[in-house]
Design a binder for these strands. Structure first.
Length: 868
RNA sequence: GGGAGCAUAGCUCAGUUGGUUAGAGCACUUGCCUUACAAGCAAGGGGUCACAGGUUCGAGUCCUGUUGUUCCCACCA
């Protein structure tokens, strides 16, 4: 802040970048192991390297930055570890797309060539999001920045994999998994989104062998008929009992399959007959397993039909479906078609319809891992904020299925398994394997598949601190204190961190899980690319400043709840920043060139004692809120204190009387207490005042002090304020001209009040616009306006506030004004077009308005009459 | 089918172990460029806290039910 030329308006662009660079240059964000201090640790949820900063990040990072700055100022050794996620499927899709635009197919590349390309891509774009996070003011320790695919994290991944494998918790097997035909990889259950889509129920007749009878099956996916290996009915279904054990012929396909009985079949649903296709439906897979049915896969990895589909081989699944339905119709096997709406699984990355598919994949056995993760929250070692999210967490973990961790992708951690071509042994190893540990053959090759991204990000809280090495950082900063994330990511990520950490480190990864909601657009819709309704935080920062954005994300936000983003809200927070800026200008006007230290003097006036006491209490409340992670409430309290109590009242008092040291003390403390929320402007102003230390960032966070508390001063100011407000109110009601001084008589039998009011009459005179004031035990003025407020009786002689001639003139002017308005409304009501076309509500409103104006006019006329 | 959230001013939302007269921002009305700030100041209007019961001296807050709404999970042959 330049002392000579104080701009009337705060301009964040002149400030933010410069200050952030200074902070970084001086290493204020860096935390090192120091056993003399208590650590406080947050690891940042790593954004994808494909990503661009969106409002979700802005919210998440603002919350973390406020907490970490608060804790740092409280004296903790506060560490915030940043980093990025390789996001295997998302990044691979982007690179494949980029290649496609260049006319290159991924299939024409070797794995090595592709990875080279991917790393180059990471170098080029991976840094973007990091620089964007910095623009928010995030005080992360950038010297400790990590990447889920860096050397250390890769080592952690192998350690984790091998340990789970050795414990028998990882296995490979043929299972039915979700297959994305576009990404050409398996995906886990939690990566499938269900979308309601229009579809059809095709009722197909399966003719019973050696009979003219047939069974009708309803299906939504007729093309899977090629993989049917049975029809199933409920054993208690009287309609079909007699068919059990007989065979039917699959229409068109011509293969003969048995009719079996299984309780899974619901008599009420559809026709009560179910076709069993174990290779393409999870339930059928289980039924098939119970009855030892063969498994026939009918599709390729791109969802075209394979050789088992005969003449349909090579056709896309939907083309094949259409053709098959035609064929069924022609051959008389199609009984009817019903339109239905049904939920279809889609890929969470590319939205393609997922195909359940039998495949050889790697899995983690989840049951034993889930138990301690449930316990950890039940015991309260780790707590959700708000608490209700623990219910969702329990429910998910209690019903967990095995986790499919292998992906048919290249960008990621390659599974550390080497197959021996000679003896068939599977070598599972932390290090690279050169020869088979069993037969010493060198004819080995590594598993082609990579691991699910969440397999590595599940290790994030401890891998970033050096695990599996026993680093001093891990020993000191771990477990972390709080994880800040959105509820949408609890299943994907939070649970994985908890069970991974408990299994590997025997510790919970974090003590608290602070859950926030989604940032929605002003109409309450999710911000999304397809809707084009996303608000770019960088544009907001450009226009209003990072401090305003941060504060607007906190005001009225409460843990776990979604909240809507409005430009108007940011604007009001920008105004708040400007308010503080101008308050600082006022303080400068008063202290510059004078010997003001900002130390509290021995003897203080009542208003000085009041603001100091109020500040101390506010500090207490704000700290309590922050400790409980109630950031929105804390922000509101700061806003109210700074704007209402400090700016609107204390600064006005200080223009009349007051100690300049107190003025400086208060604003400096305000800057410090507000700093975690608005780091840039507070630093800028703090630097402009006399100060000890290099940066506001390292100031001690204000605390409540008993000796600053002054109930008497607070009570006294309350009385002064009540009188001022009553007088202002009366002036307004009686339309006393602005600037007109009035005489005031106050009656009170309380001698304490009497002395407070008398001693501070200068304040009352100035702020209530008085000519003079008289305070006594008894006031008796017959011709007066009287107001009784909570504390005293206030009288104003009537002649004193009403200059008859002036008042008459004012009323006549008002009369003209109202007449004009009334004329307008009446004209509108006479307008035929208006009456016939406007909604009834608007018309009624206008009629009402006209009536109000007529009444007002009558009152004004009466008042003019009274004044004569 | 199972679970959770939400319902408070015209709009968007706070309101934390129950406590006088329910708050903020924006919008609205009125008057002010009052020497920090018009991105401002002062005053004001506007709420049966979804509905119905219950607990209590006292309920926006706790309990039960109802309605509306959003979301999550599961399933949909």
């Amino acid at each position: 802040m330049e002392k000579k030329e104080l701009s009337k308006v705060y301009n964040p662009k002149d400030v933010e970048e410069r200050i952030y660079e200074t902070w970084q240059k001086n290493g204020y964000f860096h935390a090192k192991v120091d056993k003399s201090k208590k650590p406080f640790t947050i690891v940042m949820p790593p954004p994808n390297i494909t990503g661009k900063l969106h409002m979700g990040h802005a919210l998440d990072d603002t919350i973390q930055d406020i907490i970490i700055r608060f804790k740092r100022m409280q004296g903790y050794n506060a560490l915030w570890v940043p980093g990025t996620d390789h996001a295997s499927i998302a990044t691979e899709a982007k690179i494949t797309e980029q290649l496609r635009k260049e006319g290159i197919s991924k299939d024409d590349m070797t794995r090595e060539e592709f990875l080279e390309r991917a790393w180059a891509w990471k170098e080029e774009y991976g840094g973007n999001i990091v620089s964007q996070i910095k623009k928010l003011g995030s005080s992360c320790d950038w010297s400790r920045q990590r990447f889920t695919l860096d050397e250390g994290c890769s080592k952690a991944v192998r350690e984790f994999f091998v340990r789970l494998y050795e414990k028998g918790l990882i296995y490979k097997g043929e299972r039915l998994i979700n297959w994305c035909p576009k990404c050409k990889t398996s995906i886990s259950d939690s990566e499938v989104n269900f979308e309601e889509k229009d579809g059809h129920f095709w009722h197909i007749k399966y003719k019973i062998e050696n009979s003219d009878e047939y069974l009708t099956v309803a299906t939504t996916r007729p093309e899977t008929m090629f993989g049917d290996t049975a029809l199933a009915v409920n054993p208690n279904d009287d309609r079909y009992k007699r068919f059990i054990g007989k065979n039917v012929m699959i229409p068109v396909v011509g293969r003969v399959i048995p009719i079996i009985a299984d309780d899974y079949v619901d008599i009420e649903v559809g026709t009560g007959v179910l076709k069993i296709t174990p290779a393409h439906d999870p339930n059928d897979f289980e039924v098939g397993a119970r009855h030892n049915l063969p498994i026939i896969n009918v599709m390729n990895d791109d969802a075209t039909m394979n050789e088992n589909a005969g003449e349909y081989s090579g056709l896309d699944r939907y083309v094949a479906r259409k053709k098959l339905v035609e064929n069924l119709k022609e051959s008389g096997h199609l009984e009817q078609i019903k339109d239905i709406k049904h939920n279809v699984g889609t890929c969470y990355r590319c939205s393609s319809v997922v195909e359940p598919r039998i495949s050889n994949q790697w899995f983690v056995k989840m049951k034993d891992l889930a138990k301690p993760a449930i316990e950890c929250v039940k015991k309260g070692t780790t707590s959700f904020i708000p608490e209700r999210f623990s219910k969702i967490y329990y429910h998910w973990l209690e019903n967990i299925k095995d986790w499919c961790i292998s992906r048919q992708l290249w960008w990621g951690h390659r599974i550390p398994v080497w197959y021996c071509a000679d003896c068939g042994h599977m070598n599972v190893s932390r290090g690279d394997v050169k020869k088979c540990e069993k037969c010493s053959s060198e004819n080995i090759h590594q598993e082609e598949d990579t691991l699910d991204t969440w397999f590595s990000s599940g290790l994030w809280p401890f891998s970033v601190l050096g695990w599996p090495e026993k680093t001093p950082e891990l020993d000191y900063f771990y477990p972390t204190d709080v994880l800040v994330t959105g509820y949408d990511i609890i299943f994907f990520w939070v649970v994985k961190m908890v069970f991974s950490s408990l299994e590997m480190t025997k510790r919970e990864p974090f003590k608290n899980i602070l859950i926030h909601g989604l940032v929605r657009d002003s109409r309450g819709r999710k911000m999304s690319k397809s809707l084009g309704n996303g608000v770019d935080p960088l544009e907001i920062i450009e226009k209003y400043g990072a401090d305003a954005l941060r504060f607007s994300l906190m005001m009225g936000n409460s843990p776990g709840n979604d909240f809507r983003f409005f430009n108007e809200k940011v604007e009001s927070c920008r105004n708040f920043a400007n308010k503080i800026w101008n308050a600082a200008r006022f303080v400068h006007m008063n202290i510059d060139g004078e010997n003001v230290t900002g130390d509290l003097p021995q003897n203080m006036s009542i208003t000085d004692k009041w603001i100091v006491s109020r500040f101390s209490k506010t500090a207490k409340e704000v700290t309590e809120c922050l400790e409980k992670f109630e950031l929105g409430v804390a922000a509101q309290k700061l806003y109210d204190f700074i704007w209402d109590e400090f700016c609107d009242w204390y600064i006005e008092f200080s223009k009349i009387s007051g100690d300049k040291n107190v003025l400086l003390w208060t604003i400096k403390n305000i800057l410090v207490i507000l700093h975690p929320f608005m780091p840039f402007i507070t630093e800028e102003i703090w630097q402009s005042f006399p100060h000890d230390g290099e940066t506001i960032m390292l100031c001690k966070y204000p605390v409540y002090a008993e000796n600053l508390n002054d109930e008497k001063a607070e009570e006294s100011v309350k009385i002064l304020v009540s009188v001022i407000k009553s007088v202002r109110n009366m002036r307004r009601e009686k339309n006393v001209q602005h600037g007109k001084k009035i005489a005031l008589y106050i009656e009170t039998e309380n001698s304490n009040y009497e002395s407070i009011l008398s001693e501070n009459s200068n304040i009352l005179i100035k702020l209530a616009g008085l000519k003079n004031i008289s305070v006594s035990k008894k006031v008796d003025i017959p011709q007066s306006i009287t107001v009784i407020n909570d504390f005293v009786k206030i009288c104003v002689p009537i002649d004193d506030i009403v200059d008859r001639a002036e008042e008459t003139a004012r009323l006549k002017k008002e009369q003209e004004n109202v007449l004009k308005q009334l004329e307008q409304v009446e004209n509108r009501l006479k307008d035929e077009k208006f009456i016939s076309r406007a909604p009834q509500k608007i018309i009624d409103g206008a009629k009402e308005n006209a009536e109000i104006l007529r009444q007002k006019l009558r009152k004004i006329e009466q008042s003019i009459e009274d004044l004569k």
